[in-house]
Amino acid sequence: MSEEQLKILEAQFEARIARDEKIEPKDWMPEKYRKTHIRQMSQHAHSEIVGMLPEGNWITRAPSLRRKVALLAKVQDEAGHGLYLYSACETLGISRDELYEQLHTGKAKYSSIFNYPTVTWADMGAIGWLVDGAAIINQVPLCSTSYGPYARAMIRVCKEESFHQRQGYEIMIKLANGTPEQKEMAQDALNRWWWPSLMMLGPTDAESVHTEQSMKWKLKRKSNDDLRQQFIDQTVPQADLIGLTIPDPDLKWNEERQSYDFGPINWDEFWQVVKGHGPCNKERMNARVGAWERGTWVRDAAMAHAEKQASKKLEKAM
Protein backbone atom coordinates (compact mmCIF):
# COMPACT_ATOMS: atom_id res chain seq x y z
CA MET A 1 0.00 0.00 0.00
CA SER A 2 1.37 3.42 -0.92
CA GLU A 3 1.72 6.12 1.69
CA GLU A 4 -1.01 8.12 0.01
CA GLN A 5 -3.49 5.21 0.07
CA LEU A 6 -2.69 4.68 3.73
CA LYS A 7 -3.42 8.32 4.48
CA ILE A 8 -6.80 8.10 2.75
CA LEU A 9 -7.70 4.93 4.67
CA GLU A 10 -6.67 6.54 7.94
CA ALA A 11 -8.73 9.65 7.23
CA GLN A 12 -11.78 7.48 6.43
CA PHE A 13 -11.16 5.51 9.62
CA GLU A 14 -10.95 8.61 11.82
CA ALA A 15 -14.12 9.96 10.18
CA ARG A 16 -15.99 6.76 11.00
CA ILE A 17 -15.07 7.08 14.66
CA ALA A 18 -15.96 10.77 14.66
CA ARG A 19 -19.42 9.76 13.34
CA ASP A 20 -19.71 7.37 16.32
CA GLU A 21 -19.54 4.30 14.11
CA LYS A 22 -18.11 1.22 15.80
CA ILE A 23 -15.02 -0.56 14.55
CA GLU A 24 -15.35 -4.36 14.34
CA PRO A 25 -12.55 -6.97 14.34
CA LYS A 26 -12.29 -7.58 10.61
CA ASP A 27 -12.47 -3.89 9.64
CA TRP A 28 -9.33 -2.20 8.44
CA MET A 29 -7.63 -0.27 11.23
CA PRO A 30 -4.36 1.61 11.64
CA GLU A 31 -1.64 -0.50 13.25
CA LYS A 32 -1.39 2.01 16.07
CA TYR A 33 -5.09 1.63 16.87
CA ARG A 34 -4.66 -2.14 17.06
CA LYS A 35 -1.57 -1.92 19.26
CA THR A 36 -3.03 0.69 21.59
CA HIS A 37 -6.16 -1.40 22.05
CA ILE A 38 -4.22 -4.57 22.72
CA ARG A 39 -2.21 -2.69 25.33
CA GLN A 40 -5.17 -1.11 27.09
CA MET A 41 -7.55 -4.07 26.88
CA SER A 42 -4.97 -6.59 28.02
CA GLN A 43 -3.88 -4.34 30.87
CA HIS A 44 -7.52 -4.17 31.86
CA ALA A 45 -7.94 -7.96 31.67
CA HIS A 46 -4.74 -8.54 33.65
CA SER A 47 -6.00 -6.14 36.34
CA GLU A 48 -9.17 -8.19 36.74
CA ILE A 49 -7.19 -11.41 37.06
CA VAL A 50 -4.53 -10.08 39.44
CA GLY A 51 -7.29 -8.20 41.29
CA MET A 52 -8.66 -11.51 42.53
CA LEU A 53 -5.51 -12.20 44.52
CA PRO A 54 -5.75 -9.56 47.30
CA GLU A 55 -9.34 -10.64 47.97
CA GLY A 56 -9.00 -14.39 47.57
CA ASN A 57 -7.16 -14.55 50.87
CA TRP A 58 -10.26 -13.33 52.73
CA ILE A 59 -12.87 -15.68 51.29
CA THR A 60 -12.26 -18.33 53.94
CA ARG A 61 -11.95 -15.66 56.63
CA ALA A 62 -15.14 -13.73 55.92
CA PRO A 63 -16.95 -12.94 59.19
CA SER A 64 -20.35 -14.33 58.13
CA LEU A 65 -21.97 -16.46 55.47
CA ARG A 66 -23.58 -13.34 53.97
CA ARG A 67 -20.18 -11.71 53.56
CA LYS A 68 -18.65 -14.91 52.26
CA VAL A 69 -21.14 -15.51 49.43
CA ALA A 70 -20.86 -11.85 48.41
CA LEU A 71 -17.06 -11.90 48.30
CA LEU A 72 -17.02 -15.21 46.50
CA ALA A 73 -19.45 -13.87 43.88
CA LYS A 74 -17.37 -10.71 43.48
CA VAL A 75 -14.14 -12.63 42.94
CA GLN A 76 -15.92 -14.93 40.50
CA ASP A 77 -17.14 -11.86 38.59
CA GLU A 78 -13.58 -10.61 38.37
CA ALA A 79 -12.51 -13.88 36.77
CA GLY A 80 -15.43 -13.48 34.36
CA HIS A 81 -14.53 -9.88 33.56
CA GLY A 82 -10.95 -10.89 32.87
CA LEU A 83 -12.22 -13.55 30.49
CA TYR A 84 -14.60 -11.19 28.62
CA LEU A 85 -11.74 -8.77 28.15
CA TYR A 86 -9.20 -11.38 27.09
CA SER A 87 -11.59 -12.68 24.41
CA ALA A 88 -12.31 -9.15 23.22
CA CYS A 89 -8.57 -8.54 23.03
CA GLU A 90 -7.98 -11.75 21.07
CA THR A 91 -10.22 -10.43 18.27
CA LEU A 92 -7.31 -8.10 17.46
CA GLY A 93 -5.18 -11.07 16.45
CA ILE A 94 -3.15 -11.78 19.57
CA SER A 95 -3.42 -15.19 21.25
CA ARG A 96 -4.38 -15.83 24.86
CA ASP A 97 -1.03 -17.45 25.32
CA GLU A 98 0.84 -14.36 24.21
CA LEU A 99 -1.28 -12.24 26.54
CA TYR A 100 -0.48 -14.43 29.54
CA GLU A 101 3.16 -14.49 28.53
CA GLN A 102 3.23 -10.67 28.58
CA LEU A 103 1.69 -10.61 32.05
CA HIS A 104 3.95 -13.30 33.46
CA THR A 105 7.16 -11.79 32.13
CA GLY A 106 6.21 -8.32 33.36
CA LYS A 107 6.02 -6.91 29.85
CA ALA A 108 2.37 -6.00 30.34
CA LYS A 109 1.19 -3.96 33.30
CA TYR A 110 -1.83 -4.30 35.53
CA SER A 111 -3.37 -1.76 37.87
CA SER A 112 -0.83 -0.72 40.50
CA ILE A 113 -3.48 -0.78 43.25
CA PHE A 114 -3.33 -4.58 43.48
CA ASN A 115 0.24 -4.41 44.72
CA TYR A 116 -0.93 -3.26 48.14
CA PRO A 117 -1.54 -5.81 50.92
CA THR A 118 -4.94 -6.66 52.42
CA VAL A 119 -4.18 -6.98 56.11
CA THR A 120 -7.60 -6.76 57.77
CA TRP A 121 -11.21 -7.61 56.92
CA ALA A 122 -11.91 -3.87 56.60
CA ASP A 123 -9.69 -3.91 53.51
CA MET A 124 -12.41 -5.91 51.74
CA GLY A 125 -14.76 -3.03 52.52
CA ALA A 126 -12.29 -0.36 51.40
CA ILE A 127 -11.47 -2.19 48.17
CA GLY A 128 -15.12 -2.58 47.18
CA TRP A 129 -16.00 0.97 48.13
CA LEU A 130 -12.93 2.83 46.87
CA VAL A 131 -11.11 0.62 44.36
CA ASP A 132 -14.25 -0.62 42.62
CA GLY A 133 -15.70 2.87 42.95
CA ALA A 134 -12.71 4.35 41.11
CA ALA A 135 -12.80 1.50 38.58
CA ILE A 136 -16.46 2.18 37.78
CA ILE A 137 -15.71 5.86 37.17
CA ASN A 138 -12.98 4.76 34.79
CA GLN A 139 -15.09 2.11 33.07
CA VAL A 140 -18.50 3.65 32.49
CA PRO A 141 -17.24 5.94 29.68
CA LEU A 142 -15.69 2.88 28.00
CA CYS A 143 -19.15 1.41 27.32
CA SER A 144 -19.28 3.79 24.34
CA THR A 145 -15.70 3.36 23.16
CA SER A 146 -15.09 2.92 19.43
CA TYR A 147 -13.94 -0.71 19.34
CA GLY A 148 -17.10 -2.86 19.28
CA PRO A 149 -15.90 -5.93 21.20
CA TYR A 150 -14.38 -3.75 23.95
CA ALA A 151 -17.54 -1.65 24.29
CA ARG A 152 -19.72 -4.78 24.48
CA ALA A 153 -17.49 -6.35 27.13
CA MET A 154 -17.54 -3.14 29.15
CA ILE A 155 -21.32 -2.92 29.11
CA ARG A 156 -21.48 -6.34 30.70
CA VAL A 157 -18.70 -5.52 33.17
CA CYS A 158 -20.34 -2.28 34.30
CA LYS A 159 -23.72 -3.94 34.75
CA GLU A 160 -22.19 -6.52 37.06
CA GLU A 161 -19.84 -4.24 38.93
CA SER A 162 -22.23 -1.97 40.78
CA PHE A 163 -22.88 -4.64 43.40
CA HIS A 164 -19.13 -4.79 44.07
CA GLN A 165 -19.03 -1.23 45.30
CA ARG A 166 -22.21 -1.55 47.33
CA GLN A 167 -21.07 -4.66 49.16
CA GLY A 168 -17.82 -2.88 50.04
CA TYR A 169 -19.56 0.21 51.34
CA GLU A 170 -21.92 -1.97 53.36
CA ILE A 171 -18.93 -3.61 55.05
CA MET A 172 -17.59 -0.14 55.91
CA ILE A 173 -20.97 1.02 57.27
CA LYS A 174 -21.20 -2.02 59.55
CA LEU A 175 -17.67 -1.57 60.86
CA ALA A 176 -18.05 2.20 61.28
CA ASN A 177 -21.17 1.64 63.36
CA GLY A 178 -19.63 -1.21 65.35
CA THR A 179 -17.33 -1.30 68.38
CA PRO A 180 -14.57 1.34 68.71
CA GLU A 181 -12.10 -1.30 67.53
CA GLN A 182 -14.18 -2.05 64.45
CA LYS A 183 -14.53 1.62 63.62
CA GLU A 184 -10.80 2.04 64.01
CA MET A 185 -10.27 -0.86 61.66
CA ALA A 186 -12.47 0.81 59.04
CA GLN A 187 -10.66 4.14 59.45
CA ASP A 188 -7.28 2.41 59.16
CA ALA A 189 -8.35 0.74 55.91
CA LEU A 190 -9.58 4.08 54.52
CA ASN A 191 -6.26 5.67 55.52
CA ARG A 192 -4.30 3.05 53.61
CA TRP A 193 -6.50 2.80 50.49
CA TRP A 194 -7.44 6.43 49.93
CA TRP A 195 -4.26 7.66 48.23
CA PRO A 196 -3.62 4.54 46.14
CA SER A 197 -7.24 4.80 44.93
CA LEU A 198 -6.64 8.37 43.76
CA MET A 199 -3.46 7.24 41.99
CA MET A 200 -5.38 4.45 40.33
CA LEU A 201 -7.10 6.99 38.10
CA GLY A 202 -3.77 7.53 36.40
CA PRO A 203 -1.01 10.16 36.26
CA THR A 204 -1.91 13.85 36.05
CA ASP A 205 -2.97 15.15 32.66
CA ALA A 206 0.38 16.88 32.23
CA GLU A 207 2.18 13.52 32.64
CA SER A 208 -0.25 11.31 30.77
CA VAL A 209 1.30 10.39 27.43
CA HIS A 210 -1.60 8.63 25.74
CA THR A 211 -4.48 10.97 26.54
CA GLU A 212 -4.80 12.93 23.32
CA GLN A 213 -4.85 9.95 20.95
CA SER A 214 -7.08 7.97 23.30
CA MET A 215 -9.62 10.78 23.43
CA LYS A 216 -9.82 10.76 19.65
CA TRP A 217 -10.49 7.03 19.59
CA LYS A 218 -12.99 7.33 22.45
CA LEU A 219 -10.82 5.02 24.51
CA LYS A 220 -10.99 7.85 26.95
CA ARG A 221 -13.75 10.41 27.32
CA LYS A 222 -12.53 12.38 30.32
CA SER A 223 -9.02 13.22 31.45
CA ASN A 224 -7.44 11.52 34.47
CA ASP A 225 -7.66 14.69 36.54
CA ASP A 226 -11.35 15.12 35.77
CA LEU A 227 -12.06 11.50 36.69
CA ARG A 228 -10.11 11.92 39.93
CA GLN A 229 -12.07 15.03 40.86
CA GLN A 230 -15.31 13.20 40.12
CA PHE A 231 -14.24 10.32 42.35
CA ILE A 232 -13.29 12.63 45.23
CA ASP A 233 -16.49 14.67 44.98
CA GLN A 234 -18.62 11.55 45.03
CA THR A 235 -16.70 9.72 47.79
CA VAL A 236 -16.14 12.42 50.45
CA PRO A 237 -19.85 12.74 51.35
CA GLN A 238 -20.05 8.93 51.58
CA ALA A 239 -17.23 8.95 54.15
CA ASP A 240 -18.87 11.80 56.07
CA LEU A 241 -22.13 9.90 56.15
CA ILE A 242 -20.62 6.97 58.04
CA GLY A 243 -18.38 9.08 60.28
CA LEU A 244 -15.02 8.22 58.70
CA THR A 245 -12.35 10.81 57.95
CA ILE A 246 -10.59 11.14 54.59
CA PRO A 247 -6.85 11.13 55.41
CA ASP A 248 -6.08 14.45 53.71
CA PRO A 249 -5.57 17.56 55.88
CA ASP A 250 -5.86 19.78 52.79
CA LEU A 251 -9.24 18.44 51.74
CA LYS A 252 -11.71 21.34 51.66
CA TRP A 253 -14.95 22.16 49.89
CA ASN A 254 -14.43 24.90 47.31
CA GLU A 255 -17.66 26.86 47.03
CA GLU A 256 -16.60 28.59 43.83
CA ARG A 257 -15.64 25.41 41.97
CA GLN A 258 -18.41 23.37 43.62
CA SER A 259 -15.77 20.68 44.15
CA TYR A 260 -13.32 19.55 46.77
CA ASP A 261 -9.76 20.87 46.80
CA PHE A 262 -7.32 18.20 47.85
CA GLY A 263 -3.69 17.81 48.91
CA PRO A 264 -0.72 16.75 46.78
CA ILE A 265 -0.49 13.11 45.65
CA ASN A 266 2.76 11.24 46.22
CA TRP A 267 3.52 10.40 42.60
CA ASP A 268 6.95 9.01 43.50
CA GLU A 269 5.16 6.23 45.32
CA PHE A 270 2.94 5.62 42.29
CA TRP A 271 5.87 5.29 39.89
CA GLN A 272 7.74 3.07 42.33
CA VAL A 273 4.80 0.68 42.47
CA VAL A 274 4.33 0.78 38.68
CA LYS A 275 8.01 -0.05 38.23
CA GLY A 276 7.62 -3.14 40.40
CA HIS A 277 8.73 -1.88 43.81
CA GLY A 278 5.35 -1.84 45.57
CA PRO A 279 4.76 -3.85 48.74
CA CYS A 280 3.31 -6.91 46.95
CA ASN A 281 4.40 -6.83 43.27
CA LYS A 282 6.57 -9.94 43.65
CA GLU A 283 4.05 -11.80 45.75
CA ARG A 284 1.24 -11.18 43.25
CA MET A 285 3.28 -12.32 40.26
CA ASN A 286 4.58 -15.38 42.09
CA ALA A 287 1.03 -16.36 42.99
CA ARG A 288 -0.19 -15.83 39.44
CA VAL A 289 2.67 -17.54 37.63
CA GLY A 290 2.68 -20.36 40.19
CA ALA A 291 -1.02 -21.04 39.67
CA TRP A 292 -0.55 -21.05 35.90
CA GLU A 293 2.38 -23.44 36.06
CA ARG A 294 0.75 -25.78 38.55
CA GLY A 295 -2.25 -25.95 36.22
CA THR A 296 -0.21 -27.04 33.18
CA TRP A 297 -0.83 -30.75 33.64
CA VAL A 298 -4.58 -30.17 34.00
CA ARG A 299 -4.73 -28.21 30.75
CA ASP A 300 -2.64 -30.84 28.97
CA ALA A 301 -4.72 -33.69 30.34
CA ALA A 302 -7.97 -32.03 29.25
CA MET A 303 -6.58 -31.55 25.75
CA ALA A 304 -5.33 -35.15 25.57
CA HIS A 305 -8.73 -36.39 26.73
CA ALA A 306 -10.53 -34.28 24.12
CA GLU A 307 -8.28 -35.58 21.35
CA LYS A 308 -8.77 -39.17 22.45
CA GLN A 309 -12.55 -38.77 22.51
CA ALA A 310 -12.49 -37.17 19.07
CA SER A 311 -10.41 -39.96 17.55
CA LYS A 312 -12.65 -42.61 19.16
CA LYS A 313 -15.64 -40.96 17.53
CA LEU A 314 -13.85 -40.97 14.21
CA GLU A 315 -12.97 -44.65 14.50
CA LYS A 316 -16.57 -45.55 15.24
CA ALA A 317 -17.70 -43.66 12.17
CA MET A 318 -15.29 -45.56 9.93
Binding site: G80, Y84, S87, A88, E90, R96, R152, A302, H305, A306
Partner: peptide, 19 residues
Protein backbone atom coordinates in the same frame (compact mmCIF):
# COMPACT_ATOMS: atom_id res chain seq x y z
CA UNK B 1 -18.54 -13.68 23.42
CA UNK B 2 -15.94 -16.40 23.25
CA UNK B 3 -13.84 -18.62 25.47
CA UNK B 4 -11.22 -21.35 25.38
CA UNK B 5 -12.02 -24.99 26.12
CA UNK B 6 -10.57 -28.40 25.32
CA UNK B 7 -13.81 -29.74 23.81
CA UNK B 8 -17.45 -28.86 23.21
CA UNK B 9 -18.64 -30.23 26.52
CA UNK B 10 -16.14 -28.14 28.46
CA UNK B 11 -16.99 -25.13 26.32
CA UNK B 12 -20.63 -25.46 27.38
CA UNK B 13 -19.72 -25.79 31.03
CA UNK B 14 -17.39 -22.79 30.89
CA UNK B 15 -19.93 -20.73 28.96
CA UNK B 16 -22.44 -21.36 31.71
CA UNK B 17 -20.01 -20.01 34.33
CA UNK B 18 -18.63 -17.13 32.29
CA UNK B 19 -21.74 -15.83 30.55
Amino acid sequence: GSLHAADAEMALENARDVY
